[in-house]
Simulated assay, not measured.
Amino acid sequence: MINKRILTLLSILSFFLLSVSSFAQEAKIYEKYGVTVETLQPGLSEGDQAFLFKGKDQDGKTYQLKEALKKGPVVVNFFRGSWCPYCTKHLMNVQDSLGMIEAAGATFVAVTPENQERFAKLVEKKGLTFEMVEDSKLDIMNGFKVTFDVNQGYQDMLKKYENDLTVTNSIKRASLPVPATYIIAQDGTIIKRHYDPNYTERMSVKDILSTLQAQ
């Protein structure tokens, strides 16, 4: 009969090997999306207190989350940059439904590491009427724990399309946010989040509205 201690050790070893295999598979997927896995932050969770940030918007005015929350809930979206078609499409969807978000008592703000000159052009071109904020030192991204460093393969791919993150990012560094969305109650508590390193996935406007209307 196999000793119980040996069975326990075998069980622990099996769990360890499965964990290593699972991590390797996950890492391979994340690398596909440009993520240097060891730098990937886990994101704030529902129930956490939001990081009360401030920064310059597209008009050079100071945006403060603390002040915005006095008016009602705030939807914070992390925007990779005007070069990202998935991000732009999502923001256009939000713009199309912005009236309904505001009717639910909330406001929407997008945060990006891209320099203000570039995203201000996107705002004007697409007619976006919500505020966008420059995260010039990655303080906001780090405050929400959504930052990662971009791997070299993805950087090289972007450069083929004449986009060098060390040039287009305000901080001149190849770092991006997970394109996460956080819905924050007036007391600063995160009541809903969408966090997925897969940049093709976003929190839908439908989910945003259903969360706000349930409050």
Rank of each mutant, 00 (worst) to 15 (best):
R5N: 12
I6L: 08
I6R: 12
L7D: 09
L7A: 09
T8M: 13
L9E: 08
S14K: 02
A27N: 11
K28D: 12
K32C: 14
K32M: 14
K32V: 15
Q41C: 08
G43L: 05
G43A: 08
L44M: 06
L52G: 10
F53Q: 08
K54H: 12
G55K: 01
K56E: 11
D57Q: 07
D57C: 06
Q58Y: 11
T62A: 08
K66W: 10
A68T: 04
K70M: 09
K70P: 03
V75D: 04
V76I: 02
F78W: 09
F78Q: 12
F79R: 02
R80T: 03
R80A: 05
S82P: 00
P85F: 06
P85V: 10
Y86G: 05
C87P: 00
N93A: 14
V94D: 05
G99L: 11
I101M: 03
E102N: 14
E102A: 08
T112A: 02
F119D: 02
F119H: 00
K125S: 10
K126C: 03
G127H: 07
L128M: 03
L128Q: 01
E134C: 04
D135T: 03
S136W: 11
K137E: 14
K137D: 14
L138C: 13
N142V: 04
N142T: 05
G143V: 09
T147E: 13
N151R: 10
Y154G: 07
M157K: 15
M157R: 14
L158I: 02
K159I: 06
Y161T: 12
D164Q: 10
D164C: 08
T166R: 14
N169R: 03
P177C: 02
V178C: 02
I184A: 06
G188W: 01
T189S: 15
I190P: 01
I191A: 02
R193H: 13
R193Q: 09
P197S: 13
E201N: 14
S204I: 00
V205A: 06
L209I: 11
S210T: 12
L212H: 07
L212T: 05
Q213H: 01
